[in-house]
Simulated assay, not measured.
Amino acid sequence: MLTHVDEHGQANMVDVSDKSITQRQAIAQGSIQMSKVAFDMVVNNQHAKGDVLSVARIAGIQAAKKCGDLIPLCHPLMLTKIQVDFIPEPSENTIKVEALCKLAGKTGVEMEALTAVSVATLTLFDMCKAVDPLMTINNIKVLQKQGGKSGDWTRQD
Rank of each mutant, 00 (worst) to 15 (best):
M1S: 15
L2Q: 12
L2F: 15
L2S: 09
T3R: 03
V5Q: 08
V5A: 08
G9N: 05
G9C: 09
Q10T: 09
Q10Y: 12
A11P: 13
A11T: 07
N12A: 15
D15P: 06
V16A: 01
V16M: 01
S17D: 12
S17E: 10
K19S: 04
S20W: 04
I21Y: 09
T22A: 02
Q25G: 04
Q25P: 06
A26K: 01
A26F: 03
I27C: 05
I27K: 05
I27E: 03
A28D: 09
Q29F: 10
G30W: 00
G30M: 04
I32K: 00
I32Q: 00
Q33W: 05
S35L: 10
K36I: 11
K36V: 11
V37M: 13
V37K: 14
V37F: 10
A38I: 08
A38G: 08
A38F: 03
F39D: 01
F39P: 01
D40G: 10
V42L: 05
V43F: 05
V43P: 02
N45Q: 13
N45R: 13
N45H: 15
Q46D: 07
Q46N: 11
H47E: 11
A48G: 04
K49E: 14
K49R: 15
G50M: 06
G50A: 09
D51V: 10
D51P: 07
S54R: 10
A56M: 06
R57A: 15
I58P: 00
A59T: 02
G60L: 05
G60Q: 03
A63H: 02
A63C: 08
A63Y: 02
K65W: 04
K65C: 09
K65M: 11
K65V: 07
C67E: 07
C67R: 05
C67P: 04
D69Q: 13
D69C: 05
L70T: 11
P72C: 06
L73I: 12
L73F: 06
H75E: 03
P76Y: 14
L77R: 00
L77W: 01
M78Q: 12
L79P: 00
L79W: 02
I82T: 13
Q83W: 04
V84N: 04
F86C: 08
F86I: 13
P88T: 15
P90R: 12
S91P: 06
S91D: 15
T94S: 14
I95T: 07
E98T: 12
L100R: 06
L100M: 08
C101K: 01
K102M: 10
G105I: 03
G108T: 05
A113H: 02
L114P: 00
A116V: 08
A116G: 03
V119D: 00
V119R: 01
T121V: 12
T121C: 14
L122F: 07
T123E: 11
T123D: 03
T123A: 12
L124P: 07
F125L: 09
D126S: 05
M127L: 15
C128I: 10
K129M: 14
K129E: 12
A130Y: 05
L134W: 11
M135K: 00
T136V: 15
T136A: 07
I137S: 09
I137M: 15
N138D: 14
V142L: 10
L143Y: 08
Q144S: 14
Q146H: 09
Q146V: 07
G147A: 11
G148H: 03
G148R: 01
K149H: 06
W153P: 00
W153D: 01
W153T: 01
T154F: 04
R155D: 14
Q156F: 06
Q156V: 15
